[in-house]
Amino acid sequence: MAKQNERIAVAKTYKIYIGGKFPRTESGRYFTLEDGEGNVIANMCRGSRKDFRNAVVAARNAQSGWAKTSAYLRGQILYRIAEMLEGRREQFVAELKLQGSTKRAAEKEVDQSIDRLIYFAGWADKYQQVFSSVNPVASSHFNFSVLEPTGVVAMLTPDESSLLGMISNLAPAIAGGNTCIALASESMPLCAISFAEVLHASDVPGGVVNILTGLRSELTSQFASHMDVNAVIYCDASEAVAKTVQELAADNIKHVIGRDRVDWNSDAENPYMIRDTQEVKTTWHPIGT
């Protein structure tokens, strides 16, 4: 009789997250993730431009519905994500350690990620009051400016700080009614896909957040050039990459948001992170006669 402790481990298949589903990459390609000692940790989907295209379609379809969801409910859903992440804290700590983190650093990153979600959950129904304005004008008009979500946001999330950095980019974008496509950290992608499972269990409608894994060198130009993407975020990019992104983004005048040398521990908790992916609509309303 076999001993209980001889049980064969069940390894997890990390797939990508598009439109509320977990498909494999349409390209069938993979890249292998290794730990510091050269042991294989996982085979990751090497996402293709067509995966990205499919993700943009999903994000676009979800966008108007998500933008119309009440700000209060968006906050509640963000809070729910935090709750779900809290419940799976140990799994994320273990994954970070597997990818080379120390226990203490891993715990700190997961805790901060949960707190970051709570932080932006709180802002979801408050940033409008802070950034909207009634403007003085020299005519008989009531003139006011309000925020509207930019739309579909494509984000090349930080390679370091793979969980906290990604959440610090995702949370403010979706708190503000955008839908997004995030490219996970290339060197530490495990948490991104596990986080997709958290999103999946958190009342986030399919398509609001889409997460791909793959090679940054291959996908950056796609993120920057797609005509149906309204804003592109890059983090810690080299000068050459930043230039490429800005040039390609010019085709449809995307918002380009460069987040370089951000300390994700301390610099990302501010409502300007939400403001970055908002448009200002100013209305002139005649008054008097």
Partner: peptide
Amino acid sequence: GVYQSADY
């Protein structure tokens, strides 16, 4: 060579 948007 660039994916398009219905906006245009």
